[in-house]
Amino acid sequence: MEPIVAVIVGVLMAATVYLMLSRNFVRFIFGLALLSHAANLVIFASGGMTRARPPLIAPGESAPLPDISNAVPQALILTAIVISFSLLTFALVLAFRTYQELETVDTDRMRAAEPMSAGADAGQRTVG
């Protein structure tokens, strides 16, 4: 089971890097969503993946049976999923408001906070 998850994480990370290198901010946010899923899958797989063995302690025993999957990483990613969804929602609203105010989602053309100086502007014009 773990090799399949490792391949899935690799594919997700490749898609993340491809999307995050885009200048389109909306694509960047989609890459961010995939990135958080890839990170959560890594943590999920670190707890072990076994079938049909609940992490319970049998009566009379002091420790759970061997070959169980660890429940703590699963509880951790439950929290991480909630947090990443809230941040994703904030990023989507931020992208929408930015599009309303600046009328672009191209991060190269968002120059409201850092306006181009006269020299840099002239340099770009000769290059362009």
Binding site: F25, N40, L76, I83, L94, E101, L102, T107, A112, A113
Partner: peptide, 27 residues
């Protein structure tokens, strides 16, 4: 304001990548 939103895009992008990395580091 436009300048605030523009700055927040950069700050959000960098910090969200950093949080995903720190999420991985909890393993």
């Amino acid at each position: 304001t436009p300048a605030q939103l523009d700055g927040a895009v950069r700050y959000a992008a960098l910090s969200l990548i950093a949080t995903a990395a720190s999420d991985c580091c909890t393993v």
